[in-house]
């Protein structure tokens, strides 16, 4: 199995067969999972979202324009999928705790693991639009332009969201009390509840 998908899959405009599309889609699965995981914060749910996105991409394959960026195209589908599920509001439910024990996996360095988990919690506490911008540009290897296309906003908007996200994360990581306290998760849940209340109020 190929783990390292190229950052950008080159496609020739002509002669891009269904089999090639499928091969490229398969190569992108790890990226779909990684992007979904960072949006959801919950591994099981993230894989559901990633699978749905993969199948949607497959079904819509004839709408893909060969030669354009397949990764950005599938990420757009995934993102839409994520928000349509989210609108049916699962995030405010108690899905956060899994984040804590999610991946202590390959890191033998305990301190590093703790830091990563703190960072995950920090990520989870960001606003959706900031988190996704930060992940797209700062981790998934996409450009500001591609991120803007995926999020359906201006490049400048992506830049300012990334900048705000970084600032928030810096503050959170400096405060450093995420993860150290046993009630860190509960505090996050409370924050989510407050945020979703605020959204409900704003949405009226």
């Amino acid at each position: 199995m190929t783990v390292s998908a190229p950052a950008e899959i080159k496609t020739k405009p002509e002669e891009y067969s269904e089999a090639e599309f499928k091969r490229d889609l398969i190569e992108l699965i790890p990226h779909l999972r990684a992007f979904a995981r960072s949006l959801c914060g919950n591994a099981t749910l993230a894989d559901d979202v990633a699978q749905d996105a993969m199948l949607k991409a497959w079904k819509a394959r004839e709408k893909f324009i060969p030669g354009t960026n397949l990764k950005a195209w599938t990420f757009t589908i995934l993102r839409n999928q994520f928000y349509s599920i989210k609108r049916r509001s699962w995030r405010a439910t108690s899905l956060e705790p899994e984040v804590a024990e999610q991946t202590i996996v390959a890191n033998s360095d305990a301190e590093q693991s703790i830091y990563l988990n703190e960072l995950r919690r920090g990520l989870n506490s960001l606003k959706d639009d900031q988190r996704e911008a930060l992940i797209l540009v700062g981790a998934s290897g996409l450009s500001y332009e591609e991120a803007a296309e995926i999020c359906g906003c201006a490049i400048g908007t992506v830049k300012s969201r990334v900048s705000r996200a970084r600032k928030s994360l810096e503050e959170i990581m400096e405060a450093g009390d995420f993860g150290a306290k046993a009630d860190g998760i509960r505090a996050l849940d409370a924050m989510d509840a407050i945020l979703s209340d605020a959204e409900n109020i704003a949405g009226k």
């Binding site: 790890p30 990684a34 699978q51 991946t103 990563l116 960072l119 995950r120 700062g138 994360l169």
Partner: peptide
Amino acid sequence: PEKIGKNLQQIYNDVLDEPVPDDF
């Protein structure tokens, strides 16, 4: 915030490195 940036990529890459579940 180099440390944050580096670790952000680490979080993402950790998932990339996971074996893809057969379901997919």
